[in-house]
């Protein structure tokens, strides 16, 4: 099917299998764009931010929309699973309620029905919610190309504004969220400065693994929407290892983030504001993950 959109003719290809999709992508490479839910891509086409000759629609590719759990593997979110599906999935809610809630904070229910997990991650918009949580959970992206299958840790997946580690001929097929340690708890806070359906001005995820005595084995904190990709500072996280997370320590971590991010300015908040919000939301996210209230 050929359409005229975004000031050019575009051929829409509708592969019927993952293999066909990968082959089509290999054949057209730079000239092609994958389209899943289309919620992001159609806007990009309309505004002529991208102008591919081919759109490879995943709409008819079977087997990419599962949301499953396997013991020892963790959660597997098919690239074509809708965000709504991920939000409401019983296994996601059971094994990682914070992740389910995060999907539930994306846009509004209409967008969540159309948008896909793979599309959200591949778009790599700096102001998305799921990426910083998936990074904190040490999820992996599974990519397929004629050269084979590879797994990319999400910590390496996001490169910069709208830039990922996916090669032009690679298809994202699923996101694997590994089994989390028994003592791990997470929180994600989405802070919006305009309408409640806005993208985040800042998103903060805290991931804490506590031992039985309540001492922190490991702390991870990721910040979304403050820079080109989710921000995480190992030096600050290391402050918490082997410590009890009291107000002073939490404050130190929060301060570290606030001082070390290089925040952007946009209509949702200036760099000045984002830096201050980093301090507030790193602290609140940690407190929330600890179950200390810290409501937004």
């Amino acid at each position: 099917m050929r359409v005229f959109f975004g000031m050019r003719d575009i051929d829409i290809l509708e592969p019927r299998s993952v293999e066909e999709a990968v082959a089509a992508l290999a054949q057209h490479g730079d000239e092609a764009k994958v389209i899943a839910g289309g919620t992001a891509l159609v806007l990009m086409l309309k505004n002529q931010l991208v102008s591919p000759a081919y759109l490879i629609s995943l709409g008819r590719v079977p087997g990419l929309d599962g949301v499953t759990y396997g013991a020892g593997v963790g959660l597997r979110l098919g690239a074509l699973a809708s965000i709504r599906q991920a939000e409401t999935s019983a296994v996601v809610r059971q094994h990682c309620p914070t992740l389910a809630e995060t999907f539930g904070k994306v846009a509004n229910v209409r967008v969540r029905h159309a948008a896909t997990v793979g599309g959200n991650v591949s778009e790599a918009d700096y102001a998305s919610d799921p990426p910083c949580v998936l990074v904190a959970l040490r999820a992996r992206a599974v990519a397929l190309s004629p050269r084979g299958r590879r797994e990319i840790p999400l910590t390496e997946f996001f490169r910069d504004f709208y830039e990922t580690a996916l090669a032009a001929d690679e298809l994202l097929t699923e996101i694997v969220v590994p089994e989390q340690p028994a003592g791990a708890r997470q929180s994600y806070l989405k802070f919006v400065t305009r309408s409640s359906e806005d993208r985040p001005c800042i998103g903060a995820c805290a991931w804490i693994d506590l031992d039985e005595a309540g001492v922190c084995r490991e702390l991870r904190v990721t910040l979304g929407a403050v820079a080109g990709k989710p921000q995480e500072f190992a030096e600050a996280e290391a402050l918490a290892a082997g410590q009890r997370l009291g107000p002073d320590l939490i404050g130190q971590v929060a301060q570290y983030y606030a001082e070390h991010i290089d925040p952007l300015s946009d209509a949702r908040g200036s760099a000045w504001y984002r830096r201050r919000m980093a301090a507030v939301f790193v602290r609140r996210a940690i407190e929330q993950a600890l179950g200390a209230g810290g409501e937004v």
Partner: peptide, 16 residues
């Protein structure tokens, strides 16, 4: 005009 669309120009939603 740099926010002439409804993702960049916000109007209240029912949640507001």
């Amino acid at each position: 005009l740099i926010n002439a669309n409804l993702s960049d120009y916000m109007i209240p939603s029912f949640k507001d």
